[in-house]
Structures are given as C-alpha cells and as structure tokens.
Design a binder for these strands. Structure first.
Lengths: 127, 127
DNA sequence: CAGGATCCCTTAGGATACTG
DNA sequence: CAGTATCCTAAGGGATCCTG
C-alpha cells in the first residue's frame, strides 16, 4: 500500500487538483511539453516534432499552456512571421513529475498489455 | 532545464506511452485509484467516496482498470450481491508517480491561477 | 446491491480553406 | 510562417429506467 499519497488532495469537493490534471490529461499537452523540454521551438518545428498533431490542436494546446503560464510565446514582427515557444520555470518544473509517470508507463506497459490480452482471452472463451 | 526526462519515450511513432497515459487522463480514473489507495472498497462505497461520479462512469472506469490489470474484482454470490475492488500490486505501484504529479498540481495551483488571471486581464484590456 | 441498456447532449478533435 | 474560421464526426459522459 502506497501510503495514501494522494488521498486528501483529490477528494476535496472543490477539487483543486482536477482542473490542473484535466489539462495534462488531454491528448497533446504532454507531447508538446516534451517537445519543448530541450529548449525553444517554433510553431513549425513543433509540428514536425509531433507529426500527427493538427495545426488546430497545436495552436489550441499552445494557447492553453500560455494562459496557464507554462510557456511563453514570443512574436517577432518579421516577414514571414516567427513565433518562439519556451517553457517557463513553472512549465519546466512539470517535466520532473511527468517523467515519473512516463517511466511508470514504460515499465508497466508489458504488464498492462498482458492483462489486456488475458481479459481478451476470457471474453473470447466466454462468448 | 529538466534533463529531457521524457524525450524519447513520447516521440516514438508507435507511442508506447500514450495508450497508458490516455487511460489515466480521463476524468475519473485518478479519483478511483485514490479511493482504493487505502484498501478494498465496494461499489457503493466508491460512489460515496466520489460523490459526483455517475454509476455508469464508475462501472466503466472500474471495468477498464480491471482489464488493464490495475485492480481485481471479486464477486460474492450472495443476495444482495457484493463486489469488492482491490488494487493489484501494479495498480498500487501507480500511486507513487501519481502522487508526484498531484503534489506538483497542488504546489503549482496558485501560480497557474495567477497566470490565468493575468491572461484574463490582458484579454479584458484588449477588448 | 451492483450494475446493464438506452437516450441524449456536450466536447474533443480532424480536415479543409483562408489570411496577415 | 503562423495561425484563424468553419464544418463535421466520434467519443465522453450525465440521467433515467430496468434487472438478477
């Protein structure tokens, strides 16, 4: 038993944690944070780094991250325009706990897939 | 800069991490895991522990967690029926990295809300 | 008690086209 | 280049009713 690490945090009626976790729970935020983990990137660089993101979702995700203060957006008034995205210290500080979670996912992947396969077997045998 | 903790993991085309993170990224999984962090619980106990979850979503979330091998479901063939849910060692092992993330959310909450308020100010001033 | 089945609405998100 | 606007579909998820 893991010492109820998260107990009181989540049950709270106002749920101070959920509005934060809801953000990183979407499909792209983690990937964008990751792509920015090595430093400043431009819009198109991010699109190349995350091949299957649509330009719409990339733009939306970046706006949200900017609004939440996790990255800064720097516009250069040149032609053609150029926009740089950089993690703030706050955004950067998220990479560490996120790394814990991702490493768990990597090491647990095999076990999870095995469990899914077992569940599939059971279902197949029953039907 | 946080040492590119998550880099290679996420960019992978087959994205071994996303199918795992997609699960915990939903609205209820984290809350259910938390409610089970202190030990075995029954269906109704979980509903009480997470007041605003619908029975449908609780059932669905529990099924998914069972399929993924994060918890076990034990049915007692009594009348009325009774079903116990317990985290597996795998499920329990998720509580630790999750705790890191939740503590980050708690400590960062003020900064994020301040950033959102600032963004709101900017928008209000512009319009 | 512990759900399954059904209905319905809202949101996430892709595709495409257009612009400063 | 870096987006915004529009349209559209699929999935998430609530409410309600039914049952072994």
């Amino acid at each position: 038993m893991s010492l109820r690490l998260i107990r009181d945090a989540v049950i709270d009626p106002a749920c101070p944690v959920r509005d934060v976790l809801d953000r990183i729970g979407d499909r792209w935020t983690v990937l964008v944070l990751n792509a920015l983990s090595t430093g400043t990137r431009r819009f198109t660089e991010l699109r190349r780094a995350i091949p299957d993101i649509s330009q719409r979702m990339l733009a939306k995700t970046l706006r949200t991250l900017e609004t939440d203060g996790l990255l800064t957006r720097t516009v250069f008034p040149t032609i053609p325009p150029r926009v740089d995205y950089t993690l703030t210290p706050l955004g950067d500080s998220l990479l560490e706990p996120l790394g814990h979670l991702i490493r768990w996912a990597e090491t647990s992947r095999a076990a999870i897939h095995a469990a899914r396969a077992r569940a599939g077997q059971v279902r197949a045998a029953r039907d």
